[in-house]
Nucleic acid binder design. Structure first.
Lengths: 341, 341
DNA sequence: TTGAAAGCGGTACCAA
DNA sequence: TTGGTACCGCTTTCAA
């Protein structure tokens, strides 16, 4: 059932039916009632493509997820974020379109998204430091919100991010207060902005106490258990082993912990560990998760918030960029104790 | 830059340019070269809506996720599944459209998805027992694959599911072999098909040994830690407490474990626990995760597989329904021991 | 081998 | 208050 058929069925013109359905004031109340009744009876829904073509609005939001050509797995946090956002869009009659874009030829991909015209705005995930996508999107005039931030991008843009720097600053301070002086940082890939900021927080805390960051105690790789294990083992085998570790995620922390246990050392006594995780914080009673920013459901909520920001930007394109910083929550667990003397 | 502009730029008709770009044979090779060169130079991408309107194909796949009006959180497993599927679609030039549909007025929602016409097929998540959506989708003639199955639906349809019944049958058998005779089942909501099948596996194992399932030892609720805790505590306080538990998820198991510990009992000696989890199996060395079906990355892979099934169905609508059953992997951890005598 | 024109299903301007 | 018509950007039939 399309508009033409529905209008024929009613003995009205498509114009009138369209107006009745879309709430235009110049339709008589009686006609509107009749049209609406017939529409529900006949199960009429407008064709979204045709509507989009005619109006220039897609009533859909794109979520662009980076897909590395090197590793198969997409960061699972995006899933929750998108779900949360999707719930918000759904309430406003928008849909979500997910584009997985691999890291080669990104620019073309974004231009294509614009040209394809099936989204009214996008949310950009996984920003790198100094991410060129921001300038590009601005140039393309496509409303966007960044999930995360891009250090060294000076022009203003809309973003929503957790305060990774402050979280790692606080975690480092906590260990320093416990007397630790050699703290290993088992970080994520530092071209990713969040990892860069985490390192900045770590460094900042050290420097504030007059300690020089030791390159031998800093690692940066993709966050896997293997990587956590290997990094911790290497550092513990080194000439001046750390007495504590900061891990980039729970998975990394599990590797770190295994390395510690393999050395016959006791967690929280010989070596302390603090980790961060968005997804798994509800496990903090089972595994050691002393610091975390968010539960999975609060990642969903962050997605919801980002969605509202973007919808607002779309409705009112002239407003200044919106930003939102989420503070991390700090919880200390049993795997963290004073530095051994 | 649209087709008309591009063709004007080239001094050709839109028709010819369209043909050149879409690989029609009747275009001279010279012209095709020229057109393609200009298209990339000018950064031309066809407008997806217009293309869709003209061709009747959307080049997009819908994922329909149930959104309960009661609880905010969308099942996080869907996120991973959709990401995995999205990667597969991306390689074939398809996009993902996510529709979060709440459980009221589902039928209208599905009819609207069809009428809106912006997807060529859908993947249905979270099927209930005897789910009416399957008959509806068949009637709507919209190609679909179910992530999960719907018990008691007799007509054939395409699905991909993990073998929940067999997993719980094996877990129950394992406990029975260890001498346990009173096994508590802390199940998910049993109108959900996967939970229904899990209970069937549990019951099947008991009956095969001539044991009658005891209603006092079976619970069915939404899977939360609180629920796991309360159920286990109640059962342990009952007249004939269980010596082992089967938990529906890691989160539930954590609650169960807490209840056991609160009673001053020792896990794996006084009371055993086996749980199932798709998401968190990599934590099996840290928490007790004796049985699991899949890691998060293998959930993504399941999504990829479902995506291929659906694309195949779309390309070849006359083929019979496709089905795929994933076997669960069974791993036994330290929280599971022989029944106390 | 190329182009003109109709149509996909809507919206919106202009006229009645 | 209603209807005729052009148009959104592309594909496809038919004619040249």
């Amino acid at each position: 059932m399309n508009l033409k058929e529905l209008s024929a069925h009613l003995g009205l013109s498509p114009t009138t039916v369209s107006r009745a359905l879309n709430g235009y004031p110049e339709v008589s109340e009686k006609t509107r009632q009749r049209v609406q009744k017939a529409a529900t009876e006949q199960g009429y829904s407008p064709n979204a493509r045709a509507q989009g073509l005619a109006t220039g609005r897609a009533r859909a939001i794109g979520h662009v997820l980076p897909m590395s050509t090197q590793h198969e797995m997409v960061n699972p946090i995006f899933g929750d974020f998108v779900l949360g956002a999707g719930a918000a869009y759904a309430r406003k009659g928008y849909e979500v379109v997910i584009s997985l874009v691999d890291d080669t030829g990104e620019e073309a991909a974004y231009r294509a998204i614009k040209a394809r015209g099936n989204v009214d705005g996008i949310i950009v995930h996984g920003p790198h430091m100094n991410d060129p996508r921001i300038a590009l999107l601005r140039e393309l005039q496509l409303p966007f919100v960044v999930h995360g931030r891009a250090s060294f991008v000076t022009e203003p843009y809309s973003w929503l991010d957790t305060n990774n720097q402050r979280a790692f600053r606080r975690a480092t301070d906590f260990l320093l207060d416990l007397g630790h002086r050699r703290i290993g940082l088992v970080n994520g890939l530092e071209f990713m902005d969040f990892a860069h900021r985490r390192r900045a927080g770590y460094t900042e805390a050290l420097v504030a106490r007059g300690l020089a960051p030791d390159p031998a105690l800093m690692r940066s790789e993709e966050m896997t258990e293997t990587y956590g294990y290997a990094s911790a083992r290497d550092m513990l085998d080194g000439p001046a082993p750390p007495t504590a570790f900061l891990a980039a995620s729970m998975i990394v922390a599990i590797g770190v912990r295994r390395a510690i246990q393999d050395r016959g050392m006791t967690l929280g006594r010989d070596v302390s560990v603090i980790t961060h995780d968005d997804d798994l914080s509800y496990l903090r009673n089972s595994v050691d998760v002393p610091i975390f920013t968010a539960t999975r459901s609060s990642v969903q909520k962050a997605g919801t918030r980002a969605a509202h920001m973007l919808l607002s930007l779309i409705d009112n394109p002239d407003q200044p960029p919106l930003t939102h910083l989420l503070e991390a929550e700090l919880i200390i667990g049993s795997s963290t104790g004073p530095a051994p003397s």
